[in-house]
Amino acid sequence: MKRTTRRRLTITGINLAVVAFVALVALTVDWGNVRANFWNPDGTTFDGGNWGDLITTGVVNTIKYTAIAFAGGLALALGLALARLSPIATLRWIATAYIEFFRGLPALIVIFFFGLGLPVAIPGWNPPGGFVGSGLIALIVVAGAYIAETLRAGIQAVPKGQAEAARSLGMSGGATMVRVVLPQAFRVVVPPLTNEFVLLIKDTALLSVIGVQIGQRELTTVARDFQSSGPTAGTATSLVQAALLYLIITIPLTQLVAWQERRQRKATR
């Protein structure tokens, strides 16, 4: 048998196996039950269904919390990254310890700690937004550790000659960092930062573990509430709806990252 023929037969075989598997699943599944439990028409209509709360409360708050956590995390991360690259050993040590500590913990634990532990441990601990405020601080603290490593890599990716050229012109260390190194570093880190942003969108779902007021609920919390009350109570319909909404937000962003990376590869430098 010729090699091309054998190859074609292999591909046909794989395709047939996939079709057979899909057919098997399609035949085994009880579609009526799936529809009733995962896509119950009582919740998926546009009037009287779950969409209204899911979008106007859930999606809006999810985006709001992500933006706050990302902005805060970025600012914190910039300080951490600079400290990590500092000539002063104490700063380097503190930044390294911080980053290793919070990257090594599940974000969920940190959220519990800030949301439930700190109000007990520190009398008068009452950030704006209550529990959500505490949870957001936890997300900032964790995101800062991850983004710091991304920024550090970006800063170190800028060739040493750039800082040398700036310093040889008499520019101070600070001006060199702000005017020459950081603008180039940020270009390098836009794709990984967008990835961090996507991770944060999903991490805001962790806020559902702490109690919040009704208007403060992010997407997952709203979906969870629809599991126990409303037209689709007792089904997973609202979770599937929330999942769809997450994907509508995250997939364009991950595509954006892919596009940025393609463009960066094509860039002449």
């Binding site: 060739p159 000659g161 750039q162 040398e164 050229a165 700036a166 310093r167 040889s168 012109l169 008499g170 520019m171 101070s172 005017r179 020459v180 603008p183 180039q184 270009r187 430098r269």
Partner: peptide, 28 residues
């Protein structure tokens, strides 16, 4: 920094600032 600003330096690898136009390279 003051002393360095009076010593022009030209590198083997040029080290122009790639994120700035030629004019901005000269004015920064």
């Amino acid at each position: 920094d003051q002393v360095r600003s009076r010593i022009g330096m030209v590198f083997q690898q040029f080290n122009l600032f790639p994120h700035l136009s030629v004019l901005k390279n000269l004015t920064l």
